[in-house]
């Protein structure tokens, strides 16, 4: 097993390439999910504001 990770002395190069790819390919979907949450939150906030405004208008 350690032979496998050693990669004939090229471990640093091979595993850093795999690491870079993994890092970016996890980062991208993670940021996309964060972005989606913030957009949805903003939409909800605006919706609530509008509903409140409509209700206040009804009172007066």
């Amino acid at each position: 097993m350690s032979d496998f990770f050693h990669m004939g002395g090229y471990a640093a190069y091979i595993w850093s390439v795999m690491g870079v790819a993994l890092f970016f390919m996890l980062l991208e979907p993670f940021l996309l999910v964060l972005k989606r949450r913030s957009i949805l939150q903003e939409i909800k906030r605006n919706k609530r504001l509008e509903e409140r405004r409509a209700r206040d208008k009804g009172k007066t």
């Binding site: 979907p29 996309l32 972005k35 989606r36 939409i43």
Partner: peptide
């Protein structure tokens, strides 16, 4: 990821429509 991002863009651009609400 492209489809996820497209969904985000749709939400952003269509945020004032009824179907999004």
């Amino acid at each position: 990821t492209i489809l996820m991002r497209t969904k985000n863009i749709i939400l952003q651009r269509e945020r004032k429509t009824n179907w999004v609400a």
